[in-house]
């Protein structure tokens, strides 16, 4: 088996592994630790250049209190949920349907349509910035939760369909044939035969899309402004006034904003890893 498990390697290899692992870990986590440290410092420490030292006072409660009670953060968190959850539902629902059609039915152009879904993934979305913005403005969806949801659904469906189609393709086809022989309607086959078998894929995809959308910053900045529609990733910058950056509040806000995807990851770790590899291996 490659790589050889550490437990079976030589003693010196084990020792150097044990020595370097904590080092690498600290190095890797340093930015996060810094953000966590900043989030309990008072603003004065930044004016006085005390970036890395002991906080001059422990301001965990006042900083986080500020974030939750005296800023628009709760509103931004709410927006994030309002954007993320419908997107997850919409993208997963559409892509299971599309995946079912592309995976089960043989028709002319099946492969072509499938390739179009894949090709969509190869378009770097930054180049769509201007047309998408103009489109949302002319549709009256600019600066609205609806606009972001529609756009995210449209864009995520490409990747999700690839994922779903390959998963459904891998299901034993005789199951469907058997149902057809019994005279079951096609939509009932989807609902009662295929969908229950897709549960692992649905879970994996939902977790994955949730993290993608929650962490989206680019479209949030391009398509929304202000607390009535902006999600939390973009809303954090509200702690910057016109002239000054409030590093301590931004850090506290970032920690709060990062919690849902992190919690999601730990709760659904199994599905998350499955989601990353599923569709890649066939």
């Amino acid at each position: 088996m490659f790589p050889t498990p550490i437990a079976k390697r030589s003693r010196s290899a084990q020792l150097s592994y044990q020595a370097f692992l904590p080092l690498a870990l600290i190095l890797w986590l340093l930015p996060l630790l810094a953000v966590a440290l900043f989030s309990v410092k008072p603003g004065a420490d930044f004016a006085n250049g005390n970036y890395w030292g002991i906080p001059s006072s422990f301001d965990l409660f006042s900083n986080y209190g500020m974030v939750f009670f005296e800023s628009n953060m709760p509103r931004y968190l709410m927006n994030s949920l309002l954007i993320t959850i419908p997107t997850v539902i919409g993208a997963v629902a559409l892509s299971s349907l599309a995946g079912f059609a592309l995976g089960i039915y043989k028709f002319r152009g099946n492969l072509l349509i499938f390739f179009m879904f894949i090709a969509g993934n190869f378009v770097p979305f930054q180049i769509l910035m201007v047309p998408v913005r103009d489109l949302t403005i002319s549709m009256g969806l600019y600066d609205s939760v609806m606009g972001l949801v529609l756009f995210h659904v449209a864009f995520q469906t490409g990747f999700c369909t690839l994922f779903m189609r390959n998963f459904i393709r891998a299901l034993p086809y005789p199951l469907i044939e058997a149902a057809r022989v019994e005279g079951v309607a096609e939509w009932r086959i989807f609902w009662y035969v295929v969908l229950p078998l897709m549960k692992p894929a649905l879970a994996a995809l939902a977790v994955l899309v949730f993290t993608f959308i929650w962490n989206d910053y680019f479209w949030a900045v391009v398509l929304t402004q202000g607390p009535n529609a902006q999600p939390v990733t973009a809303g954090i910058t509200e702690f910057n006034s016109q002239f000054r950056a409030a590093y301590h509040l931004m850090s506290a806000g970032s920690i709060v904003a990062a919690l849902p995807p992190v919690a999601m990851f730990f709760l659904m770790q199994k599905h998350f890893i499955a989601g990353l590899t599923l569709g890649a291996v066939k």
């Binding site: 004065a44 250049g49 016109q242 002239f243 000054r244």
Partner: peptide
């Protein structure tokens, strides 16, 4: 903002700046 500590610590004596800096001086 990163140049503020020199002023706050007394390593530099003055700052040519807009009035918005006062809030930061006081906070420090």
């Amino acid at each position: 903002q990163e140049a503020l500590p020199f002023f706050q610590n007394g390593e530099a004596a003055a700052y040519l700046m807009g009035n918005f800096a006062v809030a930061a001086f006081r906070e420090g």
